[in-house]
Amino acid sequence: MDSADSHAVARRALGLLDLTDLSGECTPAAIDRLSARAVTPHGSVAAVCLYPRFVAQATALLAGTGVKVATVVNFPAGGEDTPAVLAETQAALADGADEIDLVMPYRAFLDGRPEVARDQIAAVSSLVKAAGARLKVILETGEIGDLDKVRAASELAVEAGADFLKTSTGKVKVNASIEAARVMLDVIARSGRTDLGFKPAGGIRTLEDAAAYLAVADAAMGSGWARPSTFRFGASGLLDALVATLEGREDDGGTGY
């Protein structure tokens, strides 16, 4: 990419970013820093994504900024204890979460028990929609592997009430991939729902990574489709690369804004 193209991609991607801290050592001080980074001189990210115990803190810190607060449930294992997942979801919503990122019970799906996944997604969707929030369903595509099964999981999640399809937790060996993205975006296109979103997550760190996923989204859905309500990047380090590009400097790998 030339400098003008790089600048355009960086500006576009910044507003589509779910700035994420799902590290095991995350602390309240780290959430203070994350929330401060969410608003840059070049614009704000779409959301921060963090563990449920930090939702109330982030909600207070980001009040009035327009930055959404997203949190994860059934994370990262994608278990089958739906009552526990519902309790976790309800607590997060009560603390102010705008978006819930639910790990689908993908092992049950792979074991030939899709009804477990379908019922859990539907139950969480009901809670989320009643609260006026949005539901992202994490398929864990790297663990599913087979692209036909990725398609089937995507279709199941859409039918059960997902507002977004999300690739990955970022906690497994294989996370987001362009191949899985194409399949998931095709399911979205075929659904006829222009409000249904897509979120690649895990391993997206560079401007080139961001450009590749935006190109796939544009090809599948049209150049005007990817906006904060329909497209997000789940990443922790990508913001530094985007800000560095916008400021005309090399990304030094630091924390930046």
Rank of each mutant, 00 (worst) to 15 (best):
A160H: 03
T82Q: 10
E155A: 13
A201H: 00
T167W: 01
K136W: 10
V69H: 02
Q120P: 07
S44D: 13
D218T: 12
D240T: 15
V85A: 13
L207V: 12
G15A: 15
D98K: 06
T89D: 14
D2E: 12
I138V: 14
S126H: 12
R107A: 03
S23D: 01
D252I: 10
V85Q: 04
G78C: 07
A97Y: 01
G197Y: 04
S177Y: 07
T167M: 15
Y213W: 15
A60P: 04
H7F: 13
D195N: 14
Q57I: 01
L127K: 08
A29D: 15
A10D: 04
E88I: 02
S154V: 06
L93C: 13
A92Q: 14
G222E: 04
D98A: 15
A217V: 13
L19S: 02
G256S: 10
G253H: 07
D81G: 06
P83C: 12
D95V: 05
K173T: 14
E250G: 04
A97L: 09
S177E: 12
A13P: 06
L110T: 04
R12P: 02
G192M: 06
A63W: 06
D101G: 05
I188T: 01
A181F: 03
R205A: 13
I121R: 00
A152M: 13
L127H: 12
P28D: 09
L147C: 12
A38W: 00
T255I: 06
K173Y: 09
D81V: 10
R205G: 01
P228R: 09
G254I: 07
S236E: 03
L135H: 08
G64M: 12
A29L: 13
A211C: 07
A38H: 02
K149S: 09
G256T: 10
P114Y: 05
R53I: 04
T141E: 11
V124K: 00
R190I: 04
R11E: 14
V72K: 01
K129T: 11
K166W: 06
D148A: 15
R134P: 01
G237E: 04
L185P: 01
K129D: 14
G66T: 02
S44I: 01
A46H: 08
V73K: 06
L127G: 08
G142A: 10
P76M: 06
F54S: 02
P41R: 14
G112W: 12
S154Q: 11
V45C: 07
D251S: 15
A244T: 14
D186N: 10
G24V: 02
Y106S: 03
L62R: 00
G64W: 13
A181Y: 02
G254Y: 04
I178N: 10
T82W: 09
G237S: 15
L165E: 08
N74E: 11
V187N: 00
D111Q: 08
A97G: 05
I204C: 02
V174D: 08
V72I: 12
M104Y: 11
A91V: 07
